[in-house]
Design a protein around this nucleic acid. Structure first.
Lengths: 185, 185, 185, 185
DNA sequence: CATGAATGAGTTTTCATTCAT
DNA sequence: CATGAATGAAAACTCATTCAT
């Protein structure tokens, strides 16, 4: 039982600050101060701020999808899993005071050269989309599952960003209703 | 027919830069250089960078909604107007190379104290939502129009942000399909 | 009678520090501290440290060649002017404690991308060479003056760098002797 | 026949980097990376970066003078040996793309406290000067050899630094001509 | 109403060196 | 004899804003 290593402390601190305050609003100095690490130690583990962000998004992808998988594994029927996904969004976003999606937030106002961050966002959204489609394939043909999955994915993304702007859960509820309609539940 | 005044030149230049390059990526110096005005002249018209952003969003709201209204006024049936809205999104986003929504982009990574920008985003999204609901009230009860309008609004927001991440129009097409399903077209 | 402007103070301070301590050994902070200028003020006048160095070398070229011209204008015969040039080197280098040549010193250990500094060094040395050749053309054919001028130029460069390494005037005296031999004085 | 030890690998790597890229432009990290040794291993063998530079210059002195001696041993007459020295300079500098003299390059922009490096430069230049004088003593009195040797030494130094600035062999050729004149060849 | 010089506090990144193992 | 993590200090540069004219 030892205290977490420097690299982990940096990632955890940066994850918190990047998500809550934003990537551009979070300086290297704040990260190292709050992580209790020397600046050069940080640059021993990460080549650049962008690389920290990539680690942040990789970690976030693991945690976020794990949470989602856990939640939807509690129910069996594909339609129930989709509804559970909307419930998951609602609960998560409420807990973080509608701070929105880490990937959406970071790519919207990014220095042009930081392409690895963009790749992370594309990857994450594709992975989530595949999860949705996989669920639907238990009830529909592959073709139908793909069509529906994309529609549900769009609904979820809209629910996240709109609830962030409005600081209100109604977009998530509307998305859930719309999702139910599309699934003809 | 005279050349635009200082204030307008600043707003126009800032609008272009804020939207295309991002709010945090655009410095005051770049704005005044490209607008061809002195720094202190700029601060005579705007108290702060945030205030320029507010003017940018006000102007953008006018232009964006005008374009939308013009587009949907070309058709009569409420359902057609909704479909035209999706077509409008698709064309617009293609033209700007899927640069996304000016309001979404600016609020996701913002200093905490810049509340007036947030207010602009809330206002804009509410206005657009009201436009959608107004259209639907021509075909449905107020209650039904409100419910459907919110769902369509969520779809549109998701289409914008997801097409931005993927640099691809498929989310807009999926949103349109889903919108058609919800309207039972 | 007003105090010198910020830009001049920066150039003068940087000139002193670059020459006496070296380009790499002189940081931006030291320059602005000793010049009594804010960092951003400095960057308003100079785009980069390299640009300060270019201004330093331009200024140094003016001052250095002016001093030389003044010295050699005191005598008439071309051979005397050349000897006066060696005397000038000897006196100058003694006064600066054999700190050597500003252009030699700056190009020998320079970041590869700073090409404008290299251009300054090439320019300065060519100008000095032309001064020498011009003098000799008063006594020799253009061809002979060119050949001899290059040889004298090499002697002078060697005298400067070798007196710098040895912290001793003997290389300048040897160069003067050799110069006299070459001119058959 | 075994692979070179850690210390030698460091010296060889540092020699290459210090000479080709410059002392200030070469970081400790680059040296240990390219030498494939751990940082603390390096500091086991060398107290500081300066000490590596001293070893680099010691090694360079051996290699450089050995090459020169080999070249001039091919001819017998003292005057031919001097001419061969100029030829050696020309060939060497062309091969290294006129990168100049390792000692000149390192002392011109150095932290003031690194005196041991300066000592190396003084030592090397004196040794070379003595080589020249020794050659000349085969044809002249000691006094005459000393006078001429110093003049030739200045010419060579000038040829090296000026060919470095101009990235051109003309200063070496001019130095050779001047040397021939001084030797009355 | 217009100007450009000046600023303090910030940014990200790199340096040579030391220490615990 | 070897290691890689950790460091304080410094590097060059940019930010939004203010002020005297």
């Amino acid at each position: 039982m030892k205290k977490p290593g420097v690299k982990d402390r940096i990632i955890e601190t940066a994850s918190r600050l990047f998500y809550l305050n934003g990537y551009n609003q979070t300086g290297i100095n704040q990260i190292i101060d709050e992580a209790g690490v020397a600046k050069a130690s940080m640059y021993q583990h990460f080549r650049s701020k962008e690389e920290i962000a990539v680690s942040y998004l990789e970690r976030r992808h693991r945690l976020w999808t794990d949470s989602l998988m856990k939640r939807i594994s509690a129910v069996d029927a594909p339609q129930d899993k989709i509804m559970a996904t909307f419930d998951y969004l609602e609960q998560w976003l409420k807990e973080v005071d509608y701070r929105g999606c880490g990937w959406q937030n970071i790519i919207t106002d990014l220095p042009v050269d930081q392409t690895r961050i963009r790749e992370q966002a594309v990857f994450h959204k594709n992975e989530v989309k595949e999860v949705i489609i996989d669920i639907l394939q238990q009830a529909y043909t592959t073709e139908k599952a793909t069509v529906l999955g994309k529609q549900l994915m769009v609904l979820m993304e809209g629910a996240i960003i709109l609830s962030q702007i409005q600081k209100n859960p109604w977009p998530i509820q509307s998305a859930k209703e719309a999702g139910a309609s599309l699934l003809e539940i």
